[in-house]
């Protein structure tokens, strides 16, 4: 069941590349938020010219819903193979919704050092913010019912696609 409003993931990615290419600093590090954001960060690093160190972040330990939903097993290992202090970082996520994951990711980045600047790139912005956070770059903007969650998946060939499923727990 795909609402007519949901964009094609590969087209949204191409649009995101076009928005970032002229604007993003040539040495900005790309940091993907697990798991969907990590896939997008890899694709962006391959398609946007410049020297972009690639990092990954798992925000499990920084989420504000820990007391509500506990700790997921198998948190991925945050890996930032560059000096965070003084760096320009583009945080990358698949879907921007409440803004809580981004808040958690920013907090985690600061525990590695003091970045010079942090920008935010997302494949899809679905509105519904609960925090004063906005995307610097967005591939597409969509409206989806509040009780649905947008889910990014990747097939074995690496092609991305978007779908929806009922929202479970806190976004």
């Amino acid at each position: 069941m795909i609402p007519s409003g949901l964009p094609d993931a590969e087209a949204a990615l191409a649009a995101l590349v076009e928005r970032m290419r002229p604007a993003v600093a040539h040495d900005a590090a790309f940091v993907g938020i697990y798991s969907g954001g990590a896939w997008i960060a890899e694709r962006l690093a391959a398609r946007i010219p410049g020297n972009h160190p690639l990092g990954f972040i798992d925000v499990s330990y920084y989420r504000d819903d820990y007391a509500l939903s506990g700790l997921k097993a198998n948190a991925k290992r945050t890996a930032l193979p560059f000096d965070v202090a003084g760096s320009t970082i583009v945080l990358i996520d698949d879907v921007l919704y409440t803004g809580r994951s981004v808040r958690a990711a920013i907090n985690e980045l600061f525990d590695f050092g003091r970045p010079e600047r942090i920008e935010l790139a997302v494949l899809v912005d679905r509105g519904g913010r609960e925090l004063p956070i906005e995307a610097t770059y967005a591939g597409a903007r969509v409206a989806v019912a509040r009780d649905l969650s947008i889910v990014l998946s990747r097939d074995p060939g690496g092609t991305l696609s978007l779908g929806v499923e009922p929202l479970s727990g806190v976004a």
Binding site: D58, Y61, Y62, Y66, L71, A73, N74, A75, K76, R77, T78, V84, A85, N107, F110, D111, F112, G113
Partner: peptide, 23 residues
């Protein structure tokens, strides 16, 4: 197994500037 899996990412916390998480 859940406890052992949960411990794994904690083992690399020493690499950070701030060797803490706010859980």
């Amino acid at each position: 197994t859940h406890i052992l899996d949960t411990a794994e990412p904690f083992a690399s916390l020493g690499e950070r500037d701030v060797k803490k998480v706010p859980l």
